[in-house]
Design a binder for these strands. Structure first.
Lengths: 249, 249
DNA sequence: CATTATTTTGCAGATATTTGCAAAATAAAT
DNA sequence: ATTTATTTTGCAAATATCTGCAAAATAATG
């Protein structure tokens, strides 16, 4: 059995059971104790699980259904989140909106980093509460049940006096011609405001979002400062995005 | 069983029962007395619970984590919540703060009632999102991790332009002489503001809160409009509260 | 295809962690 | 004040981890 195959099985088991012991894994996979341990260490380095004495426990997002593929644990998010961490520095003020990737990023922020995080996503606020050094500002406003975020003029007003260093923007579609766009009108306005009060803006783009079409435009592609993706730099989907003044990570 | 797994179970039990003894835990988890004690010590170091002689008690915010439904149903809460429902009418604007009882009330609100609920408690907002007809306003501000609510001058400012009909106030202690009081300074100020912008104020008082002492006073007993309790009207704990212009339910 | 480099695997000894036990110290209860 | 329950401490056994190393498997090369 290949190493990758084994590690995939570990993740799957972890997704259903939430925890595994190394002894169990060793028997299940028919390899030595040491091999599974090394596997688990590798997986931990990738941020896909948490290793503990005698076993491993799942990161909350492992239970999330993979967007495509069958039974394959989706690690695209985690790869992206890892890259996003490189943009974080001590004492910066970061805006994170209701984008899904922001959860993955939040979970991976090193415990020694001091940050202020401004968000309109209550779930993100509670997730970040586990972190010892992060100060959290929650934006008020109308609570939009469907996306579970605050929204509307009050939210925008709350941003008025904020000057952030970086904004992690969630997006539904991205293309050169149409720029960045999402599905909901009020939210598109809010994202524009968030861009305005941030020195730099970064967006994390999953493969599936590229060249899709959505209704409400937020900004042009070149308004971005960074683009984070798990795609290889040589990938042709990215070809149009290069050399436009946006740093691609 | 992994150590982390055990500790997770301890926290879960604590979330529902509010208190545990080490003896119980030892039996429940099938480990020695000493192990659970060491677990509890570790959890205390992480600030997740408070260790006491012979056991441990939950931090108040543990109960806020909407683990699964509301866990074990505490009948006292439910009795109180039922009574609280009588104060609700169509199209009213209600403020609910971070009080625990507000969760129970929220869960019981009839599906046909149209309300606007203003809260500084994100967990309450997400719980209310299940309700088809309630409009939710979430107050912004600094997110206070320990109690999982927003707090501070921004939160107070968000209340400035709100005129509510009713305020469900959570409280830690109540007595005739010292009035209503809680443990946290900023929160006491916030509750005062919430009272100010509401036409009427109601508080739900569990037996244990009566004649306790807490640090920060919020208001006098007579500033209340309604008092909801599960105690029998003839109970002597209530004797001092009667005929003071506060309607006791 | 054979050969060489690279990676992966399992093993053994040295360290470190966890666990349960028992005696001594402390706190709570009667 | 005496008894009882709980905590603390030190200790030893069991278990898990880490390290370096050599055999096996895999990939790369000519």
């Amino acid at each position: 059995m290949l190493k990758e195959e084994r590690q995939q099985l570990i993740l799957e088991k972890l997704g259903t059971d939430k925890k595994v012991t190394l002894v169990d894994l060793g028997q299940l996979l028919n390899v030595s104790y040491d091999s599974v341990r090394r596997d688990v260490i590798e997986l931990e380095d990738k941020g896909l699980l948490k290793k503990v004495h005698g076993g491993a426990i799942a990161h909350s997002y492992l239970s999330m259904k993979p967007s495509k593929g069958l039974g394959i644990v989706n690690t695209e998010f985690v790869t992206i989140a890892k890259k996003a961490l490189k943009l974080l520095e001590n004492n910066k003020i970061i805006i994170m909106d209701g984008g899904t990737t922001n959860f993955y990023i939040a979970e991976q922020i090193p415990k020694n980093l001091e940050l202020t995080i401004v968000t309109n996503n209550p779930h993100l606020a509670t997730a970040l509460a586990e972190h010892p050094k992060i100060e959290i500002i929650l934006l008020g406003g109308s609570f939009y049940k469907r996306y579970q975020i605050t929204i509307g003029s009050k939210t925008i007003q709350d941003l008025e006096h904020i000057q952030a260093d970086l904004y992690f923007m969630g997006i539904n579609s991205i293309s050169i011609e149409n720029g960045l766009a999402i599905r909901h009108y009020e939210e598109s306005i809010l994202k524009q405001k968030m861009m305005n009060v941030s020195r730099k803006t970064v967006t994390c783009v999953l493969e599936e979002k590229i060249n899709r079409k959505e209704n409400y435009s937020v900004c042009n592609f070149t308004d971005l400062d960074y683009l984070i993706t798990s795609l290889n730099a040589s990938d042709e989907l990215l070809s149009g995005f290069k050399n436009k003044g946006v740093e691609i990570l």
